[in-house]
Design a binder for these strands. Structure first.
Length: 578
RNA sequence: UGGGGAUUGGUGUAACGGUAGCACGACUGACUCUGGAUCAGUUAGUCUAGGUUCAAAUCCUAGAUCCCCAGCCA
């Protein structure tokens, strides 16, 4: 059974504040409701997630996974994981493993684990049955000819092999299976209608000859069923009730139905919904494979990738992904979701659960002139203001600190209320601090170091005279801080729609050169020394970060999952535009 | 030029002949030892043109726009 219904999002929904606020039901739930009312499948609900193991799962698959497993959980039904492994030349065991890992990580457990290739014997027998009933024939046309005979919008032409005798078809098909013929020399085709306006019905190929080793069933077969011959029957074998797929298969539904009816076997209902599109990224397996094999990214789990593996490494939680899938809904409209929606989901989740720490990305040295040399104090810092049970930790403070370069401006613009010459701010949990001197590189003008004074009376962060400061900034003690690497990620593509390119160029022209910025001289508070791979934190005022698997003992690497909402950045960039 | 789908604020999604709602964003303000979070408020929509009806996002007619289909891929 799925564990998806244990998420926090669900708990919230179950106690709606406003009376009668019924969560909206999407069209597939309505179809299922109707079926249960009319008793179409004896009230049963069974779904399946049917990936082809020819690539890593991406967030679009997450939508489908949540839909299929979610429906089964909602109605007390079953959901299987079935590998649609009918094309051995594209498939690989690596993908089988990654898919299982990703589904589990997302928080789902399949009822049955199946492979279409385990049904090959039955599919073969059904094909012979079709031949015997005069509904399929072996065609000797080559690939180009098949396409030519299929015709155009006006209609097609029947294959010269279309009316072979049943016995000849049977003999040829058995010899295809026995390996007597080379790849591509013959196919088994359904005998339907070469003039159908739906090309899928113009005698679709059911079997092709492929002398290739299969990742799951090895060398047993040299003919392999096509998707259309395998999918519906696999659903039928498993007694799936609702065979949910994406819109591009709508044109295949007549064929899905034809195959099942021709065999007279249990008939699930296919239902199509719109696949997910996201701004600033691509979500097609072909393109994701290209990005990986061309080395545009560092593998399938590169944190910039929209793959589940990439998103996981980036630091997203399974809950945030599920919340996202729930929030975007299910419909037949082919729209594009703003990737900001996804980022909001992980912020929302991590805000509640991530411990806060202080870390400085781009250090600026601060010497507190009036703080005693060699003195160290410790301040209590709240681990998570959203979680009273998260406790506190000690933060060491001393004469030399690092603050964020962004938190100082020698010539502060309007509305910048952080540190500047002569200005006072609060150091989080510590003291008020005033800037009294700026040391710069004589040649470049770069600010190298700040000299400041602190007010001992403001210990803990509050002034006895009740004076206010406009900003609180984060800091680390230079002596105590740990040096770490931080990887900042931005959108993989520079434009919302990667296909928005000049004539003659393709989506790769829109790859964002700034999508990965590596910072090697960051400083974090000492409590982070024991952080382990995968652990997530909020670096206060900056964003959410998690420990990357590239980390070595004493050499931590953090991925920035997402920034905090940054009102100042908005004001700043608006001012610069003016 | 054939067939199959779709179209509601910036984005996504409800309303199933009877008050166009929700979420996110954006914008205001409050609060705040994170310019975070939280809270309050504002903003903005039925593809077009006809028709039926007391009443149309919803039904009818015509059109527009977008997506998918001519793999021995799925």
């Amino acid at each position: 059974m799925s564990t998806a219904n244990t998420g926090k999002g669900k708990e919230r929904d179950e106690k709606p504040e406003s009376q009668g606020s019924v969560p909206a039901r999407h069209f597939i739930q309505e179809i299922v409701d109707e079926h249960r009312k009319t008793g179409k499948f004896e009230g049963r609900v069974q779904t399946r997630f049917p990936p082809e193991p020819n690539g890593y799962l991406h967030i679009g698959h997450a939508k489908s996974i949540c839909l299929n497993f979610g429906l089964a959980a909602e109605y007390g039904g079953k959901c299987n994981l079935r590998f649609d492994d009918t094309n051995p030349v594209k498939e690989d065991i690596e993908y089988i493993h990654s898919i299982m890992e990703d589904v589990r990580w997302l928080g789902f457990q399949w009822d049955g684990l199946f492979y279409a290739s385990d049904y090959f014997d039955r599919l073969y027998a059904w094909a012979e049955q079709l031949i015997e009933n005069g509904k399929a024939y072996v065609c000797d046309l080559g690939g180009d000819d098949v396409a030519r005979y299929r015709g155009d919008l006006k209609g097609g032409k029947e294959s010269p092999y279309r009316n072979r005798a049943v016995e000849e078809n049977l003999d040829l098909f058995r010899r295809m299976k026995a390996g007597e013929f080379p790849d591509g020399s013959r196919t088994l085709r359904a005998k339907i209608d070469m003039n159908s306006p739906n090309f899928n019905m113009r005698d679709p190929v059911l079997y092709r000859i492929l002398h290739a080793e299969h990742p799951h069933v090895g060398n047993k077969w040299c003919i392999y069923p096509m998707y259309d011959w395998a999918h519906g029957q696999s659903d039928s074998i498993e007694r799936v009730t609702h065979s949910i797929c994406t819109l591009e298969f709508e044109n295949h539904r007549p064929l899905y139905d034809w195959c099942l009816d021709a065999l007279g076997i249990y008939h699930p209902q296919q239902i199509e919904f719109a696949r997910l599109n996201l701004t600033y990224t691509v979500l097609s397996k072909r393109r994701l494979i290209e990005l990986v094999t061309d080395g545009r990214v560092n593998g399938w789990d590169d944190p910039r990738m929209p793959t589940i593996a990439g998103i996981r490494r980036r630091g997203y939680t399974p809950d945030s992904l599920r919340a996202f899938c729930k929030e975007i809904g299910v419909a037949k409209f082919n729209g594009t979701i703003d990737v900001g929606r996804l980022e909001n989901c992980v912020r929302d989740d991590l805000n509640r659960r991530a411990p806060r720490v202080l870390g400085v990305l781009r250090p600026l040295k601060v010497v507190i002139d009036n703080y005693p040399e060699g003195q160290v104090e410790e301040f209590d810092a709240v681990n998570n203001p959203e979680d009273p049970n998260a406790g506190t930790r000690a933060l060491p403070f001393s004469r030399v600190l690092y603050i964020e370069q962004d938190d100082f401006r020698e010539d502060p613009p309007k509305e910048f209320f952080r540190l500047a010459p002569g200005r006072e701010v609060r150091l989080r949990y510590a003291y008020f601090l005033k800037c009294v001197g700026v040391i710069k590189d004589e040649k470049t003008g770069e600010v190298l170091e700040l000299h400041c004074v602190y007010d001992p009376a403001t210990k803990g962060g509050n002034a006895p005279d009740n004076r206010k400061v406009k900003a609180t900034i984060h800091w680390v003690s230079a002596e105590h801080a740990r040096k770490v690497e931080v990887r900042l990620y931005d959108h993989l593509f520079a434009k919302p729609n990667p296909d928005d390119v000049p004539e003659g160029q393709d989506y790769k022209a829109n790859l964002n050169p700034q999508s990965l910025v590596t910072l090697t001289d960051c400083r974090v508070e000492p409590s982070l020394a024991s952080a382990t791979v995968g652990e997530r934190f909020q670096f206060e005022r900056l964003g959410y970060f998690c420990v990357d698997p590239d980390s070595k003992p004493g050499a931590l690497v953090f991925n920035r999952t997402v920034t905090l909402r940054d009102t100042w950045a908005k004001i700043d960039s608006a001012q610069k535009k003016r």
